[in-house]
Design a protein around this nucleic acid. Structure first.
Ligand SMILES: NC(=O)c1ccc[n+]([C@@H]2O[C@H](COP(=O)([O-])OP(=O)(O)OC[C@H]3O[C@@H](n4cnc5c(N)ncnc54)[C@H](O)[C@@H]3O)[C@@H](O)[C@H]2O)c1
Ligand SMILES: NC(=O)c1ccc[n+]([C@@H]2O[C@H](COP(=O)([O-])OP(=O)(O)OC[C@H]3O[C@@H](n4cnc5c(N)ncnc54)[C@H](O)[C@@H]3O)[C@@H](O)[C@H]2O)c1
Lengths: 212, 212
DNA sequence: TCTTAGCTGTTAATTTTTTCACAGCGTGAA
DNA sequence: TTCACGCTGTGAAAAAATTAACAGCTAAGA
Protein backbone atom coordinates (compact mmCIF):
# COMPACT_ATOMS: atom_id res chain seq x y z
CA UNK A 1 0.00 0.00 0.00
CA UNK A 2 2.03 2.91 -1.29
CA UNK A 3 -0.01 6.00 -0.50
CA UNK A 4 2.03 9.17 -0.29
CA UNK A 5 1.54 11.75 2.42
CA UNK A 6 -0.08 14.07 -0.04
CA UNK A 7 -2.51 11.39 -1.07
CA UNK A 8 -3.41 10.66 2.55
CA UNK A 9 -4.01 14.37 3.13
CA UNK A 10 -6.36 14.55 0.22
CA UNK A 11 -8.17 11.34 1.10
CA UNK A 12 -8.77 12.72 4.57
CA UNK A 13 -10.15 15.88 3.06
CA UNK A 14 -12.35 13.98 0.62
CA UNK A 15 -13.77 12.15 3.59
CA UNK A 16 -14.66 15.40 5.31
CA UNK A 17 -16.25 16.77 2.14
CA UNK A 18 -18.20 13.56 1.65
CA UNK A 19 -19.47 13.65 5.23
CA UNK A 20 -20.75 17.12 4.66
CA UNK A 21 -22.44 16.17 1.38
CA UNK A 22 -23.88 13.05 2.91
CA UNK A 23 -25.49 15.20 5.60
CA UNK A 24 -27.01 17.29 2.84
CA UNK A 25 -28.59 14.28 1.19
CA UNK A 26 -26.40 14.19 -1.91
CA UNK A 27 -25.96 10.60 -3.08
CA UNK A 28 -23.54 10.56 -5.99
CA UNK A 29 -20.59 12.62 -7.11
CA UNK A 30 -18.24 12.76 -10.08
CA UNK A 31 -14.51 13.10 -9.74
CA UNK A 32 -14.62 16.59 -11.17
CA UNK A 33 -17.23 17.69 -8.62
CA UNK A 34 -15.26 16.27 -5.74
CA UNK A 35 -12.13 17.86 -7.18
CA UNK A 36 -13.83 21.25 -7.25
CA UNK A 37 -14.78 20.93 -3.58
CA UNK A 38 -11.37 19.66 -2.54
CA UNK A 39 -9.48 22.13 -4.71
CA UNK A 40 -7.58 19.65 -6.83
CA UNK A 41 -7.94 18.02 -10.24
CA UNK A 42 -10.32 15.26 -11.32
CA UNK A 43 -7.40 13.05 -12.33
CA UNK A 44 -5.93 13.45 -8.90
CA UNK A 45 -9.17 12.42 -7.25
CA UNK A 46 -9.42 9.30 -9.37
CA UNK A 47 -5.80 8.41 -8.80
CA UNK A 48 -6.05 8.96 -5.06
CA UNK A 49 -9.15 6.84 -4.80
CA UNK A 50 -7.35 3.96 -6.50
CA UNK A 51 -5.46 3.22 -3.29
CA UNK A 52 -8.71 2.72 -1.37
CA UNK A 53 -9.83 0.02 -3.77
CA UNK A 54 -13.27 1.55 -4.17
CA UNK A 55 -14.41 1.79 -7.75
CA UNK A 56 -16.89 4.26 -9.09
CA UNK A 57 -19.43 3.86 -11.79
CA UNK A 58 -18.88 5.53 -15.14
CA UNK A 59 -22.46 6.66 -15.29
CA UNK A 60 -23.15 7.93 -11.81
CA UNK A 61 -19.64 8.56 -10.56
CA UNK A 62 -19.09 7.58 -6.94
CA UNK A 63 -21.77 6.61 -4.50
CA UNK A 64 -21.08 8.90 -1.59
CA UNK A 65 -22.02 6.63 1.29
CA UNK A 66 -20.19 3.67 -0.25
CA UNK A 67 -17.11 5.73 -0.90
CA UNK A 68 -17.18 7.13 2.59
CA UNK A 69 -17.48 3.64 4.02
CA UNK A 70 -14.53 2.60 1.94
CA UNK A 71 -12.48 5.53 3.20
CA UNK A 72 -13.42 4.66 6.76
CA UNK A 73 -12.07 1.18 6.21
CA UNK A 74 -8.97 2.59 4.58
CA UNK A 75 -8.32 4.84 7.57
CA UNK A 76 -9.24 1.89 9.76
CA UNK A 77 -11.82 3.99 11.41
CA UNK A 78 -13.37 1.68 13.94
CA UNK A 79 -15.18 3.99 16.28
CA UNK A 80 -12.48 6.11 17.74
CA UNK A 81 -8.82 6.60 18.30
CA UNK A 82 -7.30 7.23 21.68
CA UNK A 83 -5.27 10.42 21.96
CA UNK A 84 -3.69 12.45 24.74
CA UNK A 85 -2.51 16.04 24.74
CA UNK A 86 0.54 17.47 26.48
CA UNK A 87 0.39 21.18 27.31
CA UNK A 88 -2.91 22.63 28.48
CA UNK A 89 -2.14 26.21 27.51
CA UNK A 90 -4.33 28.34 25.29
CA UNK A 91 -3.79 26.21 22.20
CA UNK A 92 -4.09 22.94 24.10
CA UNK A 93 -7.38 23.99 25.63
CA UNK A 94 -8.74 25.13 22.27
CA UNK A 95 -7.92 21.73 20.80
CA UNK A 96 -9.50 19.88 23.72
CA UNK A 97 -12.65 21.94 23.27
CA UNK A 98 -12.62 21.34 19.54
CA UNK A 99 -12.33 17.57 19.65
CA UNK A 100 -14.45 17.05 22.76
CA UNK A 101 -17.91 17.06 21.12
CA UNK A 102 -16.69 15.00 18.18
CA UNK A 103 -17.03 11.75 20.06
CA UNK A 104 -17.12 10.01 16.72
CA UNK A 105 -13.45 9.88 15.83
CA UNK A 106 -10.81 11.17 18.13
CA UNK A 107 -11.00 10.87 21.83
CA UNK A 108 -8.62 13.05 23.80
CA UNK A 109 -8.75 10.98 26.97
CA UNK A 110 -6.25 12.95 29.04
CA UNK A 111 -4.21 16.14 29.19
CA UNK A 112 -0.86 16.64 30.91
CA UNK A 113 0.76 19.83 32.11
CA UNK A 114 3.56 20.90 34.41
CA UNK A 115 1.56 23.80 35.88
CA UNK A 116 -0.06 22.82 39.18
CA UNK A 117 -2.84 25.32 38.54
CA UNK A 118 -3.95 23.30 35.54
CA UNK A 119 -3.60 19.80 36.90
CA UNK A 120 -5.87 17.72 39.09
CA UNK A 121 -9.05 18.92 37.46
CA UNK A 122 -11.13 18.71 34.31
CA UNK A 123 -10.36 21.01 31.39
CA UNK A 124 -13.33 21.17 29.08
CA UNK A 125 -14.34 17.79 30.40
CA UNK A 126 -10.96 16.15 29.94
CA UNK A 127 -8.92 15.25 33.05
CA UNK A 128 -5.63 17.08 33.31
CA UNK A 129 -2.78 15.33 35.13
CA UNK A 130 0.65 16.47 36.15
CA UNK A 131 3.41 15.70 33.69
CA UNK A 132 5.19 13.62 36.32
CA UNK A 133 2.28 11.19 36.30
CA UNK A 134 2.36 10.86 32.55
CA UNK A 135 4.48 7.75 32.12
CA UNK A 136 2.33 5.87 34.60
CA UNK A 137 -0.96 7.06 33.10
CA UNK A 138 0.13 6.30 29.56
CA UNK A 139 0.85 2.77 30.64
CA UNK A 140 -2.84 2.38 31.39
CA UNK A 141 -4.34 4.56 28.68
CA UNK A 142 -2.18 3.21 25.85
CA UNK A 143 -2.94 6.11 23.52
CA UNK A 144 -2.32 5.69 19.82
CA UNK A 145 -1.28 9.26 19.29
CA UNK A 146 -0.37 12.41 21.18
CA UNK A 147 -0.78 16.11 20.53
CA UNK A 148 2.11 18.25 21.74
CA UNK A 149 1.26 21.83 22.66
CA UNK A 150 4.03 22.77 25.08
CA UNK A 151 6.53 25.58 24.53
CA UNK A 152 9.25 24.87 22.00
CA UNK A 153 11.93 24.36 24.62
CA UNK A 154 10.00 21.55 26.33
CA UNK A 155 8.76 19.76 23.23
CA UNK A 156 11.76 17.48 22.74
CA UNK A 157 11.77 16.11 26.27
CA UNK A 158 8.02 15.59 26.17
CA UNK A 159 8.31 13.74 22.86
CA UNK A 160 10.97 11.47 24.31
CA UNK A 161 8.77 10.54 27.25
CA UNK A 162 5.84 9.86 24.93
CA UNK A 163 7.88 7.61 22.71
CA UNK A 164 9.26 5.73 25.69
CA UNK A 165 5.69 5.12 26.79
CA UNK A 166 4.88 3.55 23.46
CA UNK A 167 3.27 6.41 21.54
CA UNK A 168 4.01 5.99 17.85
CA UNK A 169 2.39 9.08 16.41
CA UNK A 170 2.78 12.72 17.40
CA UNK A 171 1.08 15.85 16.16
CA UNK A 172 3.47 18.60 17.16
CA UNK A 173 2.50 22.29 17.31
CA UNK A 174 5.79 23.56 18.73
CA UNK A 175 8.07 25.19 16.16
CA UNK A 176 10.88 22.66 16.53
CA UNK A 177 11.59 19.45 14.68
CA UNK A 178 11.47 16.59 17.13
CA UNK A 179 14.14 13.93 17.12
CA UNK A 180 12.40 10.60 17.49
CA UNK A 181 13.38 7.00 16.76
CA UNK A 182 12.55 5.51 13.42
CA UNK A 183 9.04 4.17 13.19
CA UNK A 184 7.56 7.02 15.18
CA UNK A 185 5.61 9.34 12.93
CA UNK A 186 5.70 13.06 13.65
CA UNK A 187 3.54 15.58 11.89
CA UNK A 188 4.24 19.28 12.48
CA UNK A 189 1.80 22.13 12.43
CA UNK A 190 3.81 25.32 12.43
CA UNK A 191 1.49 28.30 12.35
CA UNK A 192 4.22 30.91 12.11
CA UNK A 193 5.71 29.12 9.13
CA UNK A 194 2.34 29.00 7.42
CA UNK A 195 1.78 32.66 8.15
CA UNK A 196 5.14 33.48 6.66
CA UNK A 197 4.26 31.50 3.58
CA UNK A 198 1.05 33.48 3.21
CA UNK A 199 2.97 36.73 3.65
CA UNK A 200 5.54 35.71 1.06
CA UNK A 201 3.26 34.43 -1.68
CA UNK A 202 0.53 37.01 -1.27
CA UNK A 203 3.15 39.72 -1.63
CA UNK A 204 4.55 38.00 -4.68
CA UNK A 205 1.08 37.80 -6.20
CA UNK A 206 0.48 41.47 -5.45
CA UNK A 207 3.72 42.46 -7.11
CA UNK A 208 3.03 40.33 -10.15
CA UNK A 209 -0.35 41.99 -10.45
CA UNK A 210 1.10 45.49 -10.18
CA UNK A 211 3.98 44.88 -12.59
CA UNK A 212 1.81 43.44 -15.32
CA UNK B 1 12.63 34.21 -8.21
CA UNK B 2 11.45 30.64 -8.42
CA UNK B 3 11.16 29.46 -4.85
CA UNK B 4 8.76 26.59 -4.38
CA UNK B 5 6.33 26.39 -1.50
CA UNK B 6 8.37 23.69 0.09
CA UNK B 7 11.47 25.84 -0.11
CA UNK B 8 9.69 28.79 1.45
CA UNK B 9 8.50 26.58 4.29
CA UNK B 10 11.99 25.42 4.98
CA UNK B 11 13.49 28.88 4.72
CA UNK B 12 10.98 30.10 7.27
CA UNK B 13 11.94 27.26 9.54
CA UNK B 14 15.66 27.91 9.07
CA UNK B 15 14.98 31.47 10.12
CA UNK B 16 13.32 30.33 13.33
CA UNK B 17 16.17 27.92 14.08
CA UNK B 18 18.72 30.63 13.40
CA UNK B 19 16.95 33.07 15.71
CA UNK B 20 17.09 30.53 18.47
CA UNK B 21 20.78 29.81 17.88
CA UNK B 22 21.56 33.48 17.64
CA UNK B 23 20.01 33.96 21.08
CA UNK B 24 22.28 31.22 22.36
CA UNK B 25 25.38 32.98 21.10
CA UNK B 26 26.23 30.54 18.30
CA UNK B 27 27.91 32.38 15.45
CA UNK B 28 28.49 29.96 12.61
CA UNK B 29 26.76 26.88 11.28
CA UNK B 30 27.38 24.29 8.58
CA UNK B 31 24.70 23.10 6.22
CA UNK B 32 24.70 19.68 7.84
CA UNK B 33 24.18 21.16 11.30
CA UNK B 34 21.32 23.34 10.12
CA UNK B 35 19.91 20.34 8.28
CA UNK B 36 19.97 18.28 11.47
CA UNK B 37 18.06 20.97 13.33
CA UNK B 38 15.56 21.51 10.55
CA UNK B 39 15.16 17.81 9.84
CA UNK B 40 16.25 17.82 6.24
CA UNK B 41 19.41 17.11 4.23
CA UNK B 42 22.53 19.29 3.90
CA UNK B 43 22.11 19.43 0.14
CA UNK B 44 18.61 20.72 0.61
CA UNK B 45 19.78 23.45 2.94
CA UNK B 46 22.40 24.62 0.47
CA UNK B 47 20.00 24.49 -2.41
CA UNK B 48 17.30 26.36 -0.51
CA UNK B 49 19.71 29.06 0.54
CA UNK B 50 20.68 29.66 -3.08
CA UNK B 51 17.44 31.54 -3.64
CA UNK B 52 18.27 34.03 -0.90
CA UNK B 53 21.53 35.00 -2.58
CA UNK B 54 23.49 34.67 0.64
CA UNK B 55 26.72 32.74 0.26
CA UNK B 56 28.47 30.85 2.99
CA UNK B 57 32.14 30.33 3.53
CA UNK B 58 33.68 26.92 2.83
CA UNK B 59 35.69 27.04 5.99
CA UNK B 60 33.22 28.38 8.54
CA UNK B 61 29.92 27.58 6.92
CA UNK B 62 27.29 30.26 7.30
CA UNK B 63 27.51 33.27 9.57
CA UNK B 64 24.29 33.06 11.50
CA UNK B 65 23.51 36.74 11.92
CA UNK B 66 24.39 37.51 8.31
CA UNK B 67 22.29 34.63 7.06
CA UNK B 68 19.40 35.66 9.25
CA UNK B 69 19.64 39.21 7.93
CA UNK B 70 19.61 37.87 4.43
CA UNK B 71 16.51 35.78 5.16
CA UNK B 72 14.83 38.84 6.65
CA UNK B 73 15.45 40.69 3.42
CA UNK B 74 14.24 37.72 1.43
CA UNK B 75 10.99 37.62 3.39
CA UNK B 76 10.89 41.37 3.11
CA UNK B 77 10.70 41.58 6.81
CA UNK B 78 10.65 45.27 7.53
CA UNK B 79 9.41 45.51 11.05
CA UNK B 80 6.00 43.97 10.89
CA UNK B 81 3.14 42.84 8.81
CA UNK B 82 -0.43 43.92 9.38
CA UNK B 83 -2.88 41.10 9.94
CA UNK B 84 -6.49 40.76 11.07
CA UNK B 85 -8.35 37.73 12.36
CA UNK B 86 -11.95 36.77 11.73
CA UNK B 87 -13.59 34.58 14.34
CA UNK B 88 -12.76 35.18 18.00
CA UNK B 89 -13.66 31.72 19.22
CA UNK B 90 -11.34 29.49 21.18
CA UNK B 91 -8.85 29.06 18.39
CA UNK B 92 -8.97 32.70 17.36
CA UNK B 93 -8.30 33.85 20.90
CA UNK B 94 -5.40 31.42 21.27
CA UNK B 95 -3.85 32.81 18.12
CA UNK B 96 -4.35 36.40 19.22
CA UNK B 97 -2.66 35.58 22.51
CA UNK B 98 0.14 33.79 20.72
CA UNK B 99 1.03 36.57 18.33
CA UNK B 100 0.36 39.45 20.70
CA UNK B 101 3.70 39.51 22.53
CA UNK B 102 5.64 38.89 19.34
CA UNK B 103 5.54 42.54 18.38
CA UNK B 104 8.49 41.86 16.12
CA UNK B 105 6.82 40.36 13.11
CA UNK B 106 3.13 39.95 12.88
CA UNK B 107 0.70 42.43 14.23
CA UNK B 108 -2.87 41.28 14.57
CA UNK B 109 -4.42 44.72 14.65
CA UNK B 110 -8.06 43.73 14.81
CA UNK B 111 -10.44 40.84 15.32
CA UNK B 112 -13.94 40.47 13.89
CA UNK B 113 -16.79 38.30 15.08
CA UNK B 114 -20.54 38.02 14.62
CA UNK B 115 -21.21 37.35 18.29
CA UNK B 116 -22.20 40.54 20.11
CA UNK B 117 -20.75 39.15 23.33
CA UNK B 118 -17.30 39.21 21.80
CA UNK B 119 -17.43 42.52 19.98
CA UNK B 120 -16.90 46.06 21.17
CA UNK B 121 -14.09 45.20 23.54
CA UNK B 122 -10.47 44.10 23.69
CA UNK B 123 -9.60 40.42 23.40
CA UNK B 124 -6.12 39.81 24.74
CA UNK B 125 -5.37 43.45 23.95
CA UNK B 126 -6.70 43.34 20.40
CA UNK B 127 -9.89 45.24 19.58
CA UNK B 128 -12.74 43.04 18.43
CA UNK B 129 -15.32 44.54 16.08
CA UNK B 130 -18.57 43.25 14.69
CA UNK B 131 -18.33 41.50 11.36
CA UNK B 132 -20.68 44.07 9.86
CA UNK B 133 -18.08 46.76 10.45
CA UNK B 134 -15.37 44.74 8.78
CA UNK B 135 -15.46 46.15 5.27
CA UNK B 136 -15.28 49.68 6.61
CA UNK B 137 -12.48 48.91 9.09
CA UNK B 138 -10.43 47.03 6.52
CA UNK B 139 -10.61 50.08 4.32
CA UNK B 140 -8.66 51.95 6.99
CA UNK B 141 -6.44 49.17 8.33
CA UNK B 142 -5.41 47.83 4.94
CA UNK B 143 -4.15 44.52 6.30
CA UNK B 144 -1.80 42.43 4.23
CA UNK B 145 -3.17 39.14 5.42
CA UNK B 146 -6.06 37.65 7.35
CA UNK B 147 -6.47 34.64 9.59
CA UNK B 148 -9.83 32.89 9.27
CA UNK B 149 -11.04 31.03 12.36
CA UNK B 150 -14.79 30.94 11.86
CA UNK B 151 -16.85 27.75 11.56
CA UNK B 152 -16.56 25.94 8.25
CA UNK B 153 -19.97 27.05 7.01
CA UNK B 154 -19.09 30.76 7.38
CA UNK B 155 -15.55 30.63 6.02
CA UNK B 156 -16.40 31.11 2.35
CA UNK B 157 -18.50 34.23 2.86
CA UNK B 158 -15.89 35.70 5.17
CA UNK B 159 -13.16 35.01 2.61
CA UNK B 160 -15.17 36.74 -0.06
CA UNK B 161 -15.57 39.87 2.05
CA UNK B 162 -11.87 39.89 2.84
CA UNK B 163 -10.89 39.60 -0.79
CA UNK B 164 -13.31 42.35 -1.75
CA UNK B 165 -11.63 44.56 0.82
CA UNK B 166 -8.26 43.98 -0.78
CA UNK B 167 -6.78 41.21 1.33
CA UNK B 168 -4.50 39.09 -0.83
CA UNK B 169 -3.40 36.44 1.63
CA UNK B 170 -5.48 34.21 3.88
CA UNK B 171 -4.48 31.66 6.47
CA UNK B 172 -7.55 29.48 6.79
CA UNK B 173 -8.18 27.14 9.73
CA UNK B 174 -11.65 26.03 8.69
CA UNK B 175 -11.77 22.60 7.08
CA UNK B 176 -13.05 23.82 3.72
CA UNK B 177 -11.20 24.87 0.59
CA UNK B 178 -11.97 28.49 -0.10
CA UNK B 179 -12.85 29.67 -3.57
CA UNK B 180 -10.97 32.89 -4.19
CA UNK B 181 -9.97 34.83 -7.29
CA UNK B 182 -6.60 34.19 -8.84
CA UNK B 183 -3.81 36.13 -7.22
CA UNK B 184 -5.17 35.65 -3.75
CA UNK B 185 -3.05 33.18 -1.82
CA UNK B 186 -4.76 30.82 0.60
CA UNK B 187 -2.91 28.55 2.97
CA UNK B 188 -4.92 25.96 4.88
CA UNK B 189 -4.21 24.55 8.30
CA UNK B 190 -6.46 21.56 8.77
CA UNK B 191 -5.85 20.02 12.17
CA UNK B 192 -8.21 17.10 11.68
CA UNK B 193 -6.49 16.21 8.44
CA UNK B 194 -3.10 16.29 10.12
CA UNK B 195 -4.37 14.18 12.96
CA UNK B 196 -5.70 11.66 10.51
CA UNK B 197 -2.36 11.56 8.79
CA UNK B 198 -0.66 10.85 12.11
CA UNK B 199 -3.18 8.11 12.85
CA UNK B 200 -2.65 6.54 9.44
CA UNK B 201 1.12 6.56 9.27
CA UNK B 202 1.76 5.73 12.89
CA UNK B 203 -0.46 2.71 12.52
CA UNK B 204 1.36 1.73 9.34
CA UNK B 205 4.69 2.04 11.13
CA UNK B 206 3.43 -0.06 14.01
CA UNK B 207 2.24 -2.76 11.67
CA UNK B 208 5.51 -2.77 9.76
CA UNK B 209 7.34 -3.13 13.03
CA UNK B 210 5.15 -6.01 14.17
CA UNK B 211 5.23 -7.87 10.87
CA UNK B 212 8.98 -7.77 10.56
C1' DT C 1 54.76 29.54 0.66
C1' DC C 2 52.52 25.28 -0.35
C1' DT C 3 49.44 21.56 0.95
C1' DT C 4 45.41 19.67 2.43
C1' DA C 5 40.95 18.78 4.59
C1' DG C 6 36.48 19.85 4.38
C1' DC C 7 33.28 22.93 3.32
C1' DT C 8 30.06 25.47 -0.28
C1' DG C 9 27.54 26.32 -4.86
C1' DT C 10 25.71 24.26 -8.60
C1' DT C 11 24.86 21.05 -12.27
C1' DA C 12 23.21 16.55 -13.30
C1' DA C 13 20.75 12.38 -12.04
C1' DT C 14 17.14 10.37 -9.63
C1' DT C 15 12.91 9.96 -7.41
C1' DT C 16 8.37 11.48 -6.49
C1' DT C 17 4.20 13.66 -7.75
C1' DT C 18 1.06 15.38 -10.96
C1' DT C 19 -1.12 15.60 -15.29
C1' DC C 20 -2.40 13.77 -19.70
C1' DA C 21 -4.78 10.85 -22.63
C1' DC C 22 -7.47 7.26 -23.87
C1' DA C 23 -9.41 2.38 -23.72
C1' DG C 24 -13.32 0.42 -21.81
C1' DC C 25 -17.59 0.36 -19.61
C1' DG C 26 -22.52 1.18 -18.25
C1' DT C 27 -26.52 3.54 -19.30
C1' DG C 28 -30.26 5.45 -21.75
C1' DA C 29 -32.14 6.55 -26.24
C1' DA C 30 -33.41 5.18 -30.77
C1' DT D 1 -30.37 -4.53 -30.38
C1' DT D 2 -27.20 -0.96 -31.49
C1' DC D 3 -25.21 3.46 -30.79
C1' DA D 4 -23.23 7.32 -28.57
C1' DC D 5 -22.14 9.85 -24.59
C1' DG D 6 -19.44 10.81 -20.74
C1' DC D 7 -17.72 8.90 -17.13
C1' DT D 8 -13.87 5.88 -14.64
C1' DG D 9 -9.30 3.45 -14.16
C1' DT D 10 -4.80 3.51 -15.41
C1' DG D 11 -0.32 3.42 -18.16
C1' DA D 12 2.62 6.82 -19.99
C1' DA D 13 4.41 11.48 -20.12
C1' DA D 14 5.57 15.61 -17.88
C1' DA D 15 6.77 18.35 -14.11
C1' DA D 16 8.50 19.09 -9.62
C1' DA D 17 11.30 18.03 -5.81
C1' DT D 18 15.10 15.77 -3.84
C1' DT D 19 19.57 13.75 -3.78
C1' DA D 20 24.12 12.90 -5.50
C1' DA D 21 28.34 14.41 -7.23
C1' DC D 22 32.03 17.20 -7.67
C1' DA D 23 34.74 21.50 -8.97
C1' DG D 24 36.43 25.20 -6.54
C1' DC D 25 37.45 27.73 -2.67
C1' DT D 26 39.13 29.02 2.06
C1' DA D 27 41.72 29.02 6.01
C1' DA D 28 44.86 26.51 8.97
C1' DG D 29 49.10 24.20 9.54
C1' DA D 30 53.60 22.56 7.88
N1 LIG E 1 -1.48 29.54 20.99
C1 LIG E 1 -1.37 29.46 19.68
O1 LIG E 1 -2.23 29.90 18.97
C2 LIG E 1 -0.17 28.84 19.05
C3 LIG E 1 0.03 29.04 17.70
C4 LIG E 1 1.12 28.47 17.09
C5 LIG E 1 1.99 27.68 17.80
N2 LIG E 1 1.79 27.48 19.10
C6 LIG E 1 2.74 26.63 19.81
O2 LIG E 1 2.05 25.75 20.65
C7 LIG E 1 2.74 25.60 21.86
C8 LIG E 1 1.84 26.03 23.00
O3 LIG E 1 1.37 27.33 22.79
P1 LIG E 1 0.40 28.05 23.80
O4 LIG E 1 0.07 29.36 23.22
O5 LIG E 1 -0.71 27.14 24.14
O6 LIG E 1 1.36 28.25 25.04
P2 LIG E 1 0.96 28.38 26.57
O7 LIG E 1 2.12 28.95 27.28
O8 LIG E 1 -0.39 29.00 26.69
O9 LIG E 1 0.81 26.84 26.99
C9 LIG E 1 1.88 25.98 27.18
C10 LIG E 1 1.49 25.00 28.27
O10 LIG E 1 2.50 24.01 28.39
C11 LIG E 1 2.76 23.79 29.77
N3 LIG E 1 4.11 23.27 29.90
C12 LIG E 1 5.29 23.91 29.83
N4 LIG E 1 6.32 23.05 29.96
C13 LIG E 1 5.77 21.84 30.11
C14 LIG E 1 6.32 20.55 30.28
N5 LIG E 1 7.63 20.34 30.30
N6 LIG E 1 5.48 19.51 30.42
C15 LIG E 1 4.15 19.71 30.39
N7 LIG E 1 3.57 20.89 30.21
C16 LIG E 1 4.39 21.95 30.08
C17 LIG E 1 2.56 25.11 30.42
O11 LIG E 1 2.28 24.97 31.79
C18 LIG E 1 1.37 25.67 29.64
O12 LIG E 1 0.15 25.29 30.24
C19 LIG E 1 3.99 26.44 21.75
O13 LIG E 1 5.05 25.63 21.33
C20 LIG E 1 3.65 27.42 20.68
O14 LIG E 1 4.80 27.83 19.97
C21 LIG E 1 0.72 28.05 19.75
N1 LIG F 1 -10.46 25.17 18.26
C1 LIG F 1 -9.58 24.42 17.65
O1 LIG F 1 -8.64 23.93 18.27
C2 LIG F 1 -9.70 24.12 16.20
C3 LIG F 1 -8.93 23.10 15.67
C4 LIG F 1 -9.01 22.82 14.31
C5 LIG F 1 -9.83 23.56 13.50
N2 LIG F 1 -10.57 24.54 14.01
C6 LIG F 1 -11.41 25.31 13.10
O2 LIG F 1 -11.30 26.67 13.38
C7 LIG F 1 -12.55 27.30 13.27
C8 LIG F 1 -12.92 27.93 14.58
O3 LIG F 1 -12.88 26.99 15.59
P1 LIG F 1 -13.20 27.36 17.10
O4 LIG F 1 -12.99 26.13 17.90
O5 LIG F 1 -12.48 28.59 17.48
O6 LIG F 1 -14.77 27.62 17.01
P2 LIG F 1 -15.62 28.60 17.94
O7 LIG F 1 -17.03 28.23 17.74
O8 LIG F 1 -15.05 28.62 19.30
O9 LIG F 1 -15.35 30.02 17.30
C9 LIG F 1 -15.90 30.45 16.11
C10 LIG F 1 -16.14 31.94 16.21
O10 LIG F 1 -16.53 32.44 14.94
C11 LIG F 1 -17.62 33.35 15.15
N3 LIG F 1 -18.41 33.41 13.93
C12 LIG F 1 -19.31 32.53 13.46
N4 LIG F 1 -19.78 32.91 12.28
C13 LIG F 1 -19.19 34.09 11.98
C14 LIG F 1 -19.26 34.97 10.89
N5 LIG F 1 -20.04 34.73 9.84
N6 LIG F 1 -18.49 36.07 10.92
C15 LIG F 1 -17.68 36.32 11.98
N7 LIG F 1 -17.56 35.52 13.02
C16 LIG F 1 -18.31 34.41 13.02
C17 LIG F 1 -18.37 32.79 16.33
O11 LIG F 1 -19.12 33.83 16.95
C18 LIG F 1 -17.23 32.29 17.20
O12 LIG F 1 -16.76 33.29 18.06
C19 LIG F 1 -13.52 26.22 12.83
O13 LIG F 1 -13.66 26.25 11.45
C20 LIG F 1 -12.86 24.95 13.25
O14 LIG F 1 -13.20 23.89 12.43
C21 LIG F 1 -10.52 24.84 15.36
Amino acid sequence: MNASRKTIERLSHYRMVLSRLSGQGVQNIYSRELAALADCTPAQVRRDLMVTGYEGNPKHGYNISELKKSLDVFFDFKGNLVAVIVGAGSLGRALIAYFMPKKTMYDIVAAFDSDMNKTGRLINGTPCFHINEMVEKLHDLKPDIALVTVPAESAQEVALKLVKSGVSGILNFAPVRLKVPEKVYVENIDVTMSLEKVAFFSRQYREEKNNG
